[in-house]
């Protein structure tokens, strides 16, 4: 039986070599071929040493070897790199599939958003006092003022990009919050969907009541198909997350949550991409001086495209497997 000092004396050179290889690069695939196979061999030898030392040696040596094994493991099995094909198949196949699979959550989040939205419009149009109780009047008037000018002359390039930047932040923030707060058993998603639906509806109604309905309509119709859908999808992902925490089907809550994680990731990443598209449209197309009929037809085209995408993208051709 060898003592600890003898083990260290015999193996230390290998450990140091592995340590050097591991600290030379963040991931081993940045190294040359011989170094990689050498590192793999050293790692395997180290795992043997670890078993031996755990039985015989002092905690500090075991801790050293544990640490080295951990670092070598991280280096050998680097993080999954970003791959365009994988991302592409997510967008063309997995995202629409995931949404179809979770259609009921999408329907629920749509209801939670659109019903308050309709209530908001009605309130702002017919009961303005109630509307100004809910949202501050100064804000509502400010919005009406903003849309009063219309977009016939368009805005300058610079304003466009400033607005695009603003919308990216605002809407992505809304969508991601709708999603993330779903962790609180879905309640956060419910709250944010209702809240945002109500305020968007109310603003639209108020601006319309002030007589600028045409302006806000032609403005919102361009990016709406992407942006509102993306917010609804993010909300659906949040609801899915909350649902998996409540209905666990015999798993632990965490296990049930992990089970649903792949779908949730697909939905949220897809929603994020849609929000980016929406932001581009919102910053540069929606405020442009194009005549209203053109904008409405483009909006109709966008809606058809988005709907067709979610209905048909990623379906198996025929029944063939």
């Amino acid at each position: 039986m060898r003592s600890q000092d003898e083990i260290v004396a015999a193996r230390n050179a290998d450990w140091r070599e592995l340590e050097n290889l591991v600290s030379r690069a963040e991931a081993l695939h940045h190294l040359d071929g011989p170094s990689i196979s050498r590192a793999a061999a050293l790692y395997r030898a180290l795992s043997g040493d670890l078993v031996l030392c755990r039985a015989r040696c002092t905690p500090d040596l075991v801790a050293y070897l544990d640490n080295l094994a951990g670092r070598a493991h991280s280096a050998l099995y680097g993080a999954e790199p970003f791959r365009i094909p994988a991302f592409w198949s997510l967008l063309t196949r997995d995202f629409p599939r995931a949404l179809r699979k979770n259609a009921s959550f999408f329907a629920l989040s749509s209801a939670l958003f659109l019903i308050p939205c309709a209530i908001g419009i009605v309130l702002a149009l017919f009961v303005p006092d109630a509307a100004s109780q809910i949202l501050p009047r100064s804000m509502l008037d400010g919005m009406a003022d903003m849309y009063s000018k219309g977009f016939n002359e368009g805005r300058s390039e610079g304003t466009d990009s400033a607005m695009a930047g603003f919308y990216v932040n605002n809407n992505v923030g809304i969508a991601f919050r709708c999603f993330a707060t779903g962790i609180f058993f879905g309640l956060g998603s419910v709250f944010f969907l209702i809240y945002n639906g109500l305020s968007i509806g109310m603003v639209t109604g108020w601006v319309t009541a002030a007589g600028f309905g045409r302006n806000i309509g032609t403005f919102m119709c361009g990016h709406g198909p992407f942006e509102l859908t993306a917010i609804l999808i993010a909300g659906a992902a949040g609801l899915r997350m909350g649902y998996s925490l409540v209905v666990t089907r015999g798993r632990t809550r965490l296990g049930s949550l992990r089970e649903s994680a792949p779908d949730i990731v697909r939905l949220v990443v897809g929603a994020a991409v849609m929000l980016l598209i929406a932001a581009g449209i919102e910053g540069f197309w929606s405020p442009s001086g194009a005549p209203a009929p053109v904008k409405w037809s483009v909006a109709a085209l966008f809606s058809v495209l988005v709907t067709a995408y979610f209905l048909f993208a990623g379906r198996e051709r025929g029944r063939a497997r």
Binding site: H73, S74, Y77, G78, A79, E80, F82, F176, R177, F179, A180, T181, G182, I183, F184, G188, A261, P262, I264, V265, R266, V268, V269
Partner: peptide, 19 residues
């Protein structure tokens, strides 16, 4: 379980910062 981080999981854990 000790596997390296996947992109989707990284995105998820960082989105949840909002919560």
């Amino acid at each position: 379980d000790g596997h390296p981080l996947r992109i989707g999981d990284s995105f998820l854990r960082n989105l949840l910062r909002a919560a």
